[in-house]
């Protein structure tokens, strides 16, 4: 221990007599929960990813062979592409629509809170329930969407039953589900912008479009970054809606990474292999997040 550290420490009262101690005591439930349910499993699964662990017998160290298998087996690459497809499909469009919703909800309109709740309600409902409702709406022969299309004399496709449409169908439902949550966050961002900025711009003769592009967009950027980042992480981890609505099908058309991880870990007795997949997914999410943050930092410096 260095002298400087000692010097910093000295003025503090000993542990147990000051508020710091009680602070940690009150934090303990969260910290212990984090350790038991997050930190330890994260470390242990890194170890498992280097073993042939099957969930029952003792794990045997196998080096990087799980990782090698993973890249040699086409299925992981295929699932990864599907995850990327799903992410690219949901995140930008979802964020754009959420911004639109946030701007509309920010207007001084009648029954404002009614509209706000209406958009937020889907977020309270669990994915499982929503996925089952949409599953029915997408039904080819008896579903709501095709009934409407049929009434208008339009073709009635098998939304979840054709390879081309299954993923877009899941994407549409996911965007709808996330709209309220992202919208509310962006709404908070919008309300954080000082009205004086708009007033000043108005006095200077800025048009509505100018006010939007010169004030709203730059001011909302940090909030937007948060929305993009969290929805990207969420999209790469998508599981519930896929599991319920398509089971990865038809065939393997909607098999995303988390679905494959689940199948390997809990159906095929391949916990080690699944852990390796989870770690690759972690690295990808981590890298994508860092790149996204760096890009946004660079932009805000300009």
């Amino acid at each position: 221990m260095t002298n400087s550290a000692r010097a910093v420490k000295k003025p503090r009262k000993p542990l147990g007599t000051n508020e710091t101690f009680w602070g940690y005591v009150f934090l303990a439930p969260v910290i212990i929960g984090f350790l038991v349910f997050t930190a330890v499993p994260v470390v242990v699964s890194l170890y498992y990813s280097l073993t042939n662990y099957d969930g029952i017998t003792d794990p045997k160290f196998v080096g990087f062979s799980n990782y090698i298998d993973l890249f040699q087996n086409g299925e992981f690459g295929h699932a990864l592409l599907n995850s990327v497809y799903f992410t690219v499909g949901t995140v930008p469009l979802g964020a754009f629509l959420a911004l639109l919703v946030a701007i509309l909800l920010n207007q001084k309109i009648k029954a404002q809170s009614l509209y706000r709740s209406a958009f937020f309600i889907p977020c309270i409902v669990s994915y499982v329930a929503i996925a089952m409702v949409w599953q029915w709406m997408y039904n080819q022969d008896y579903g709501l969407i095709n009934s409407v299309l049929g009434a208008m004399g339009l073709p009635q496709p098998g939304w979840l039953a054709t390879e081309e449409l299954a993923m877009p169908s899941v994407i549409i439902m996911t965007i709808w589900k996330g709209l309220g949550y992202n919208g509310v966050i962006l709404l908070a961002g919008l309300q954080g912008i000082s009205p004086s900025l708009y007033e000043a711009a108005e006095i200077d003769g800025a048009s509505a479009i100018q006010r939007f592009t010169r004030i709203t967009l730059p001011m909302i950027r940090p909030t937007m970054m948060f929305v993009l980042l969290t929805s990207m992480i969420g999209a790469l981890q998508a599981f519930d809606q896929i599991y319920i609505m398509t089971s990865g099908g038809p065939g393997r058309a909607t098999e995303v990474v988390c679905y494959l991880i689940y199948m390997n870990a809990f159906q095929y007795f391949k916990q080690g292999y699944a852990s390796a997949m989870a770690y690759i997914l972690f690295i990808i999410i981590f890298a994508a997040s860092v790149i996204q943050l760096k890009v946004s930092e660079k932009n805000s410096e300009l």
């Binding site: 022969d141 039953a161 054709t162």
Partner: peptide, 13 residues
């Protein structure tokens, strides 16, 4: 028979 993919997407129903 109805298309199995369609049946899968109907779930239990």
């Amino acid at each position: 028979s109805p298309n199995p993919a369609e049946l899968t997407s109907m779930g239990k129903t």
